[in-house]
Design a protein around this nucleic acid. Sequence first.
DNA 1: CTGAAAGCGCTAACAA
DNA 2: TTGTTAGCGCTTTCAG
Lengths: 350, 350
Amino acid sequence: MVKCSEEEVRVANVSMRDVAALAEVSHGTVSHFLNHPDRVSAKTAQRIQRAIETLGFVPNQAGRQLRMGKSATIAYIAPDVSNPFFATIAEGAEERAAEHGLSVFVANSRRQRAREDAYLDLFEQHRVRGMLVASHEPIEDRLALVRKRGTPSVLMGQVAVSEDQPSVSIDDVLGGRLAAEHLLQLGRRRIAFVGGPLGVRQVADRLQGASDAIRESGSATLEVVNVVERTVAGGRAVARELLARAAAVRPDGVFAVNDLLGLGMMQVLSSEGVRVPDDLALIGYDDIEFAESSIVPLSSIRPPHEAFGYAAIELLVTELSGRTEDPHQVFPPALVPRTSTTGEPIHTDV
Amino acid sequence: MVKCSEEEVRVANVSMRDVAALAEVSHGTVSHFLNHPDRVSAKTAQRIQRAIETLGFVPNQAGRQLRMGKSATIAYIAPDVSNPFFATIAEGAEERAAEHGLSVFVANSRRQRAREDAYLDLFEQHRVRGMLVASHEPIEDRLALVRKRGTPSVLMGQVAVSEDQPSVSIDDVLGGRLAAEHLLQLGRRRIAFVGGPLGVRQVADRLQGASDAIRESGSATLEVVNVVERTVAGGRAVARELLARAAAVRPDGVFAVNDLLGLGMMQVLSSEGVRVPDDLALIGYDDIEFAESSIVPLSSIRPPHEAFGYAAIELLVTELSGRTEDPHQVFPPALVPRTSTTGEPIHTDV
DNA sequence: CTGAAAGCGCTAACAA
DNA sequence: TTGTTAGCGCTTTCAG
């Protein structure tokens, strides 16, 4: 594969055989040099090294993988890469994976089940070592199938039903409760839950927690404002709907199912003269980095971020190594009160 | 590789040969069925299809790639996945890549040159079809090497020096000028440029544009506040430094080299009672989604987002197909004035 | 310490 | 229409 002119020796598609030829050894020896350098004599090693450099040899993973049967890659399928929440998780996962000598490839499903499936296929075909799958869809059966064929995975963001399916998740029922109790404690009585679709597990759980808290209080009402897109734009749209109502029938406390929605609402409410939190207290969920720098700093429910990705990798590695611990890790979220509910200006002393 | 019990037929590592055996055809025929279905008779096709399903066969990309020499994957190496700017670019790239039947894997270099190199290696070893590389480092020589060995790339965010290296970039000098001129027009005279390191091309260009505009005005001064981390936390730190100064020697206009910095500054300034823009006008760069929902909506310089990723893929595909057009695309950024400079509340009528 | 050889799963040219 | 075959680049066992 090597065309050897005088000056220009580096050429595409250099294989171990080419290196071997130039170094005047067999290609098996080159492989030894690469994988067990100790089994090769110093001077042969040197010759091989020089040949590699001269030719610009880059080992072909496909060959290696084919021979070895497995790759050293982990796939992370996220519903929305532009949501900083998932990006931060990715960073935690990557870091831990690197410590295990594994690389992480990130794929963006854009919340579409079809794209999730496509990536699941793709990564399965690539024989990745394992997958981290953050999804808002019911995807466990699919993962069971993939697992049966040899690719393990960790479900992220929802507790798996099956014992065989490891998962890392947030206690979203608790999170919803924390948000609602916070609003109640501040004296809010007409509370709205903004989020949807309710078929999404995470959404349903948060609503349930909120709903429980409000029922127990006995003194407040919960309105559900269903929403299709849990994005900043979606939040703006909801706020406009609220503004179209007479002030008396607007909620005085809003729990947005994620920060993106909360931030979008905040934007429109503020620009239209609604005072947050005086007229309307607002709390989000996820505690993304930008919640704190919002028009009015946004109260939120904080799940672990980096730790979440970290834990997922740990679980995956555990599974890969055959050991088996508790496969369902559930993290408790924490309330982060800020101006958008408390009215108190915050001080950032970090 | 298939262990065939009565009930449990699906097993890991099913190859085309296993499928062929069960369907009682040769493995070549299975390959035909997969790649040229028309060349296979209806009933054989059916038998093969059934065998595939029974066994849960998933084709092994490593084998295919080894044979074909190339994969159908594009790599996108980004400096910071949690910066929504890069995430949005990724979405544009993905979309266009899908239209060409290509998949995109995203890797996060976390602004570390060592990690960039590691991923470059990794993807080269995987023989990806091409790479999109967004970097703040001088990386062109490295990409030239990679190209010479057969993997083309598109440099994103800085104009390539070499004719052979396609690039997609923003006119950052113009962007810097727009930001500074905007502050000047609003009557600001003690202007600070917050950003760094100056060795980073994008940073240097933005500073140059700002500096040019200010020199031309003849009536304002430009102070450079160097910064190591272009993050929200970095912005907070700078703001605290500014607050430590006597009010008279604080700048009255700040151009932050990206929105993350601007948002971090805004947070601290606001919480400490500095009025934006009355006491200090603030403009960022990148126009990320959260700029608009900031404490005070943040003015920014807007590069194209999705279009950027889209253009990069186009350029890459062009190169792959051997055609050659103008390899250096430079997009002009636009000023997006918001409350943080103009003082006017914004209305969101989208 | 080095070489020879087999085979991982796949595709495609060619033969039947 | 289907089967046979060679070989992509690599690792590893076994001999030398």
